[in-house]
């Protein structure tokens, strides 16, 4: 468990090469392709961070917009006072704090309530921020002036994405990752082995939320004017779920398989049919849930398993469903 396997080294090398190539992109293009690539890297960070929590726990979080918006606002509020890296860290910390509170309040109850609670929470926070701004100042939004070009933002987002992947990989090699694997097999057995399943889920939700908050912070300079409807847009929450599920959440790099094609197609759709974009998102959501519930990767693995001829169902898998 401490030694690197040949497979892990190979993946690390491929990943490093891909990151190096991606980092070169702004050298060749500062226009359309950079903008598109920034979107891809942004959603790669968001979807992978989301999957850190939702993959192993199967809880669907719609709080992405809340964490993201808090990150954006940490930058918008502090940009004249504090250095940018401090604000990114603060955005992550505030989001993690919120995730901890939400987790403590809801993760002991069933998954359905969790989905609804997180959706409502994101909306509530948006309303509170709007209300506070209207009360305190005359304007709805805040200005974010920095010296960052789009290429800078792109590089920072790329670095964040690498950090998300590195964290996910470290988790799988840690006690936390082993505990999550046990919980995924049989939560009751996990508890009787001494695993505090509730606390673990909260910790994971906080890690996931922190990265989403940092992504929101890094993206803030892209818009020189920040308003609640954009920063806390529920569309972000839904897009993240759609893309992550499209790719598949059973592996760390699963969401990437969804993010890259989906972002490119969406770019195309929103340019060609700007008014119909929400409809396309809705249809994509339905299609994924019905046609690819385990994502593209899950589907590919199923097909591969079927090719290898299905193995008989194990008695253990059946017994695990029985109550104690």
């Amino acid at each position: 468990m401490t030694q690197l396997s040949a497979g892990e080294i190979r993946i690390a090398l491929i990943g490093a090469a891909a990151v190096a190539a991606a980092a070169m992109l702004p050298v060749f293009d500062q226009g359309f392709y950079l903008t598109l690539s920034l979107n891809i890297v942004l959603f790669a960070a968001l979807c992978t961070a989301w999957t850190l929590f939702s993959g192993p726990t199967h809880y669907i979080s719609l709080a992405t917009a809340a964490f993201f918006g808090l990150g954006t606002y940490s930058v918008a509020l502090g940009i004249d006072v504090l250095p940018f890296p401090v604000l990114v860290a603060a955005g992550g910390a505030v989001a993690a704090l919120l995730a901890g509170l939400v987790g403590a309040a809801t993760l002991r109850i069933s998954g359905v309530y969790f989905v609804i609670f997180t959706l409502g929470l994101a909306e509530l926070i948006r309303q509170i921020v709007s209300w506070t701004q209207v009360k305190l100042g005359a304007s709805m939004g805040l200005y974010v002036f920095t010296d960052f070009s789009e290429a800078h933002i792109y590089w920072m987002m790329l670095a964040l994405t690498v950090a998300v992947f590195a964290t996910g990989w470290l988790i799988t090699r840690s006690r936390l990752g082993f505990a999550l694997q046990i919980i995924g097999n049989d939560e009751q057995v996990a508890r009787h082995c001494g695993i505090d399943t509730a606390r673990l889920k909260i910790v994971l939700f906080m890690i996931s939320g922190a990265f989403i908050g940092m992504a929101g912070a890094i993206l803030a300079p892209r818009y020189s004017y920040v308003e609640p409807p954009a920063a806390f847009s529920p569309t972000v929450s839904f897009l993240v779920v759609i893309m992550a599920l499209l790719g598949g959440t059973r592996r760390l790099w699963g969401p990437l398989v969804g993010v890259v094609p989906f972002t490119i197609v969406m770019e195309f759709v929103s340019a060609r049919f700007p008014n119909d974009t929400p409809i396309v998102i809705g249809l994509a959501f339905l299609a994924i849930v019905f046609v690819l519930p385990d994502g593209v990767l899950g589907r590919l693995e199923q097909l591969r398993a079927r090719l290898r001829r299905s193995r008989p169902a194990s008695p253990a898998a059946v017994a695990a469903k029985e109550p104690a």
């Binding site: 694997q181 097999n185 049989d186 057995v189 194990s314 008695p315 253990a316 695990a320």
Partner: peptide, 16 residues
């Protein structure tokens, strides 16, 4: 009713 961790090998089960 025996409850093992079905996706793992024997060693990982005991390591739990």
């Amino acid at each position: 009713l025996v409850r093992v961790l079905p996706s793992m090998d024997a060693e990982r089960n005991v390591m739990a």
